[in-house]
Amino acid sequence: MASIGQILLAGLSLGSVYALTALGFVLIYRATNVVNFAQGEFLMLGAYFLFTFVEGAKLNYGVAAVIAIGMLGVFGLLFALGIYYPLRNRSFLPVIIATIGASIMFQNGALAIWGSSPERLRPVLEIGGSGGVTLGGVFFNYQYVIILAVTLVLMAVQYAFFEFTLLGKKTQAISQDKDMARLLGIPVTGMIALTFMYSTVLGGLAGMLVAPIFFLQHNMGSIPGLKAFSASIIGGFGDVRGAIVGGLALGVLESFGGAFISTVYKDAFAFLLVIIFLLVRPQGFFGEKVGEKA
């Protein structure tokens, strides 16, 4: 029983990482209809930025995190200007390839800057030796608890932002009709740049939080990036709640697939179920079925 609990918890923990990364995906998609395959690299960059200030410059953890977040914001702005802006009126395919090109660039740039050895970043909380607590035979890793909490808080904040604030409504208006939004006097370009900055920060935050568990490596973002994309698809693309539910579902699926089916085929199992799920319910958990009018 304890082992079932442990497996479930592992799934939720992994899922929360996917969910947090998926949030960034969804935000950019909502604002711009762009699928950003470089989202996983933001995760990697966030981790390395924080690592550089904590382990390299020996700054206080909090101060280092604030500086890293600032840098991520700037990075997001540059990304929006360099990749999104020139491609804003093109179909989704070139944009996907451009973001993949960018991700090759970032990954190998990081390899050139930070080197090839994996690095370790200390966890946010360092109480006791094990980095967690065992309750009822189930080990709770503090870092995962923090990730889950951060994910849920961010989800709530984002949900509230979109539903209850003027700025959030404006963002939604942009995603629905850019020209109309422009006519309504919404500064579309600025708002989109802001979205990219925030999404980059979100991705980077996910990286900072997983770095103590996954370790830092130039390719650490590619798998979470791909899984986060799947998570947002399951959730119903472009839905904030869907990204969370999709991420957690994917994590749990993987974890139980690993435990009860096969450890090496767990990803295959997870993807197979995702495909079957999509065939049955093409719009995902929360997506709305959009019929095309003739």
């Binding site: 360099g82 990749i83 390839i97 451009a98 993949i100 090109g101 960018a102 991700s103 090759i104 660039m105 970032f106 990954q107 190998n108 740039g109 390899l111 050139a112």
Partner: peptide, 9 residues
């Protein structure tokens, strides 16, 4: 590979 990626973009 950095150059390769940027050429694609």
């Amino acid at each position: 590979l950095v150059v390769y990626g940027s050429i694609i973009v």
